[in-house]
Design a protein around this nucleic acid. Structure first.
Lengths: 302, 302
DNA sequence: GCGGGCCATCGGAATTCCTGATGGCGCCTC
DNA sequence: GAGGCGCCATCAGGAATTCCGATGGCCCGC
């Protein structure tokens, strides 16, 4: 039995599904299946019941899950303690992104961290809110930018700023969208994001409050792709207001005059990693950049 | 970082010596070196100072040693908890031997365990007190028979019986050893055992109390080999009294008329494994065989 | 009855780990 | 001062383990 067996066990227990667990663990489904099989054989206990709908913890599996978490927590505590003992902080911090580098002030962050901790490497990993949270939970990210609300007690997050959103339309649609009402907008084709993206929630809330459903034309889970499709005339989309404004000035997009609620841009990490010196290093410099006091604090109010 | 890294770390810390640690871990010295190197690189901390005399824990290594032990203890607790949850006890118990199977009542033990726990396999691994204790500490044995005193708090042991010992001589030496005094015996050639064998301690104590030293002719660390050498006329040796008596009746050995102190035959296991259901299964059946009440008890008085 | 979802297995590839041999360094003895 | 020994680090090759894409079996829903 090794720690990777336990990580797999815990992840499968949380997902109830081998394929989803393999995605969180960034490995393949047969690998996850083999980990569980090997662990069950070594422990001599069935951890899961296999059902057509997925993996269901057995009573024994439920009892052992806590011990597995304790073992992983002890190992994690050792790693964190080690980082506190380093002469100079050494390591790599993998940070998930959910929007463009300039908006997130990544260059300044990189410089600040490099200045304060020469032996800490940052890895900026493109993603989106929907992919980043699972990767964070799976331990594949050390911290991540996300947008929207966050109420998972296993995750700590700090609000960096409020992202103001706007409805973007192809420049050619300007005339027919001077002062549209919501049903008129719903009747237009839309470029959707994935459901786990905060923009999607804003869009859905908008239409639900007017009892109508937008026509989904296409889906794009990257902001660049969404912007390109809107500019290309495929449909409407929700983007950050400052981006739409800049594009409108350049004649590439039309900003539909409508007020949308903002979403909170956050920096998030696992609650149990908050004390990790590597995470602290990033939070500290990020806080300085955004004029905030991030650190070992109560979780920001949702 | 996996659990085998931590096992290596703890063992090297205890031994202060890569080669000795590799022997305890039943692996090779380069493998142990690589484990430590990999762990130090991952943690970003030097765990040991390399000296010509061996590996010396750094201050950071000393601090992390406790965390490593906690992690291993948590993993071990999970495994024990799993065994308690098995429908039927499943597993293998590796038992170290230090004398012949008949004396240790192994056949009866095997039958009793098989009857009570059909899915528990016993592995009887030949050894001696000197090799068995390191193997037990290294986790390569689950339990072991040993002889002699035991004062290591990390090990629990139960006295099964007192082994009466006797000095055996080649049958041809009968005439010159009718009623020998100790200096006379010391002047004879002797077949030694290794120093970690309890018989060695008895022999040394005998001569030290008379201020003389026996002549070492040859060394044998297996009882069979020792018996063969004594029968072959190479020298004297200390053996179990019942074995010498049986051989004398058959004319193969001469039992030198002299009283020796007895040594305690014990069953030992790691203190932290006492609660392990597999170990409990063996102790329970063994206790029934020897008419004793072994189990979750205070350690037997030394 | 058919298609889809889910997990288990297989064979081959990739990666990791181990081992025997060997080298470098420091210390001790002659 | 030189040589030998002890100890750890490295190397190359082999062994073992793990991973992955493909595929099969079973169950469920339409």
């Amino acid at each position: 039995m090794e720690l990777y067996h336990l990580r797999t066990f815990v992840t499968v227990a949380e997902e109830g599904h081998l394929t989803r667990a393999s995605e969180r663990l960034f490995t393949s489904q047969p690998a996850v299946s083999a980990h569980i099989k090997a662990l069950e054989e070594e422990l001599g206990v069935a951890l899961f019941d296999r059902t057509p709908r997925g993996m269901q913890l057995t009573p024994a599996g439920t009892q052992l899950l806590a011990s597995a978490r304790q073992t992983l927590a002890a190992a994690s505590a050792l790693q964190q303690q080690a980082r506190g003992l380093q002469d100079q902080l050494i390591g790599t911090v993998r940070i998930g992104l959910n929007t463009d580098a300039r908006f997130l002030r990544l260059i300044a962050l990189q410089s600040a961290v490099a200045e304060a901790h020469p032996q800490v490497a940052l890895e900026f990993l493109a993603g989106n809110t929907g992919a980043n949270l699972p990767a964070l939970r799976a331990g594949k990210l050390d911290a991540t930018f996300i947008s929207g609300e966050m109420d998972d007690p296993a995750i700590r997050s700090w609000i960096l700023c409020e992202e103001e959103l706007a409805v973007a339309a192809p420049a050619a649609w300007r005339a027919r969208l001077e002062t549209p009402d919501v049903p008129t907008l719903a009747d237009q084709p839309w470029v959707f994001t994935t459901e786990d993206c905060s923009h999607y929630g804003v869009m859905r809330a908008l239409f639900q409050s007017h009892c109508c459903t937008p026509r989904k034309t296409v889906l794009a889970n990257q902001e660049d792709a969404l912007a390109a499709m809107v500019e290309g005339g495929i449909g409407l989309g929700i983007m950050r207001r400052d981006v739409v404004e800049a594009a409108q000035r350049e004649g590439r997009l039309h900003l539909v005059p409508m007020q949308l609620p903002s979403v909170s841009l956050r920096m998030a990490c696992l609650a149990q990693r908050v004390a990790d010196p590597l995470v602290q290093a990033v939070l500290s410099e990020l806080g300085a950049l955004w004029g905030l006091d991030l650190a070992l604090r109560q979780r920001a109010s949702a």
